[in-house]
């Protein structure tokens, strides 16, 4: 984990609308290929949402980590 360089942190804790996945899509659209984004979410739906969208959009889910009261998703833009 400590070896992964995160280029951008998206703190979407407490976001119900537009929600953490929308915040991730926004960040992916703005990121360069190869960049790594960390998303913080307190929304239980993110655990299914984010992996599904990342897979469908063809990016890479590097990891999902339970933190203190929130979940951290690490996503790499690969195309």
């Amino acid at each position: 984990m400590s070896e992964i360089k995160v280029n951008k942190v998206v703190d979407a804790r407490g976001s119900h609308c537009p929600g953490p996945l929308m915040e991730l899509i926004k960040a992916i659209r703005n990121a360069g290929v190869g960049e790594v984004i960390a998303v913080y979410s307190t929304d239980s739906g993110s655990k299914t949402d984010i992996p599904r969208w990342v897979e469908k959009a063809g990016h890479q889910l590097i990891g999902v980590y339970e933190r203190n009261g929130y979940t951290e998703f690490i996503v790499k833009k690969v195309k």
Partner: peptide
Amino acid sequence: SPLPRTFPHEAV
């Protein structure tokens, strides 16, 4: 829909 659902929050 940009999301896997019709709205960001599951209940809605």
